[in-house]
């Protein structure tokens, strides 16, 4: 399966929740069926300066659709991110003397929403919140019948254009920045990276609208 994750633009004069409601109604009207709720959350781990001379920062992303896995993404070099079994979380709690989670910030980054299914097509639409403050609407479009990205780029564009307010004429920035994943087997880590890019821009205080 391959997935594209993009921010869903909220029309002016509407709240993010209203935009999500409108999108849900549109998807249901198009024949999608409501499936399980989903949640993607991201926690930042920062090393304490007295414990490590060179500061290390990494992010742990959990996805309720991949409940046995966790994804670890270093802040600096994202090419060495790994997918690990959930038991890795037990080890991270052992490192609590060395790494502190999200210092100075209240709460986590998370996307919570609903899954919609139509045959091979799956749309996850959810609200992105940072420390309890709603930041926007995120949609993940998943094509379940294909594993090689390059064979489905045009199909993905067309698929997303059916529910996005403006036609989807570009690929998400993460995918265009990594040409080597186009022809390879698509792994869930690439989906998580796309979420991570969105999370990183929210942390940096940038607006979500650009793709």
């Amino acid at each position: 399966m391959i997935s594209w994750v993009v921010p869903y633009p909220t029309p002016e004069g509407k709240t993010h929740n209203q935009a999500l409601d409108d999108l849900s109604k549109l998807l249901l009207a198009q024949g999608y069926e409501k499936d399980v709720p989903y949640c993607v959350e991201c926690e930042m781990y920062v090393s304490l300066p007295e414990m490590m001379p060179v500061q290390k920062v990494f992010h742990v992303i959990l996805d309720s659709d991949r409940p046995a896995s966790c994804f670890l993404i270093p802040d600096k070099d994202q090419s060495i991110s790994i997918t690990a079994e959930k038991s890795m979380m037990g080890f991270l709690s052992k490192l609590s003397k060395i790494f502190k989670t999200s210092p100075g910030k209240t709460g986590n980054l998370e996307v919570r929403g609903q899954t919609f299914l139509y045959r091979d097509f799956c749309v996850r639409a959810g609200i992105l919140s940072y420390g309890g403050v709603i930041k926007g609407v995120i949609v993940e479009a998943e094509l379940r019948s294909c594993s090689i990205l390059i064979t489905a780029v045009e199909l993905m564009k067309e698929f997303m254009s059916t529910f996005m307010p403006t036609p989807m004429d570009t690929v998400p920035s993460y995918i265009s920045s990594k040409p080597n994943i186009l022809g390879a087997m698509y792994s869930p880590l690439e989906t998580i990276h796309q979420y991570y890019d969105i999370f990183a821009s929210v942390r940096a205080g940038r607006s979500l609208v650009s793709r």
């Binding site: 090419s79 060495i80 991110s81 790994i82 997918t83 690990a84 079994e85 959930k86 038991s87 890795m88 037990g90 080890f91 052992k94 880590l189």
Partner: peptide
């Protein structure tokens, strides 16, 4: 604690 990981684990 035993966890299966992807290949970039050492890095």
């Amino acid at each position: 604690i035993d966890a299966c990981c992807s290949v970039r684990l050492p890095k």
